[in-house]
């Protein structure tokens, strides 16, 4: 069943049709929120608040636009808002300190386990700004085009391209330096 049909059913009063929409997008929205907030509980809260907000304002959704783009926009605003409030309340902890808590095996990317890759990415993302994290998340969410990324982030397409390139470069540099550090410590 298409998104449009499900939305029409929800608008017509069949609330249960909303479950199908939630199940279709919950992983994407949760991942987007998690990559911005870097905290499972906060990501869960942001994702839940997103879906409830989307239900409340579904009446304002224009059916000529793409539901996923609209949903990601609401989710990213929700997560960015929480990230900014969190940053004001407590500055991000030093990622290097967290990194030293656990022993890692081989710090060559090809030989790492999935868990290790996930952990190092988390540490690298913690060194980036939340706006960079949003752009990177949208970049790696494969079905989101550059035009949609611009719409979701509220930036123009050229700015998105430039910032996304910078963010990827920054992430690569930070990740490389974390991996080098790990390699040195392992020796």
């Amino acid at each position: 069943m298409t998104d449009d049909l499900l939305i029409r059913m929800v608008k017509a009063g069949k609330a249960e049709a909303y479950r199908a929409l939630v199940e279709r997008y919950q992983d994407m929205v949760y991942n987007l929120c998690y990559k911005i907030l870097l905290d499972e509980d906060e990501a869960k809260d942001a994702a839940q608040e997103t879906f409830i907000k989307v239900y409340q304002v579904l009446g304002s959704f224009r059916e000529d636009s793409k539901f996923s783009t609209w949903l990601y926009r609401i989710a990213s605003n929700m997560a960015l808002g929480k990230a900014r409030r969190k940053k004001r309340a407590e500055p991000l902890e030093d990622a290097r300190y967290v990194a030293s808590d656990e022993q890692t095996g081989d710090s060559q990317p090809d030989n790492m386990s999935q868990e290790e890759r996930s952990k190092f990415l988390h540490l690298a993302l913690a060194k980036l700004d939340e706006n960079d994290r949003l752009l990177l998340s949208l970049y790696y969410l494969e079905e989101v085009s550059m035009d949609e990324t611009a719409e979701i982030s509220g930036l123009d397409k050229n700015t998105v391209k430039v910032r996304m390139h910078r963010a990827r470069k920054k992430l690569y540099n930070v990740l490389s330096s974390i991996l080098n550090q790990e390699a040195k410590e392992a020796l």
Binding site: R19, V22, Q26, Y30, Q48, P109, L175
Partner: peptide, 24 residues
Amino acid sequence: LRQFWQDSKKEAPEGFSDFIMQNL
């Protein structure tokens, strides 16, 4: 980077959609 990203994908918590449906 794509490989790192793929490996860090997470699933929404168990019972996520039930929670949403109960709180609509």
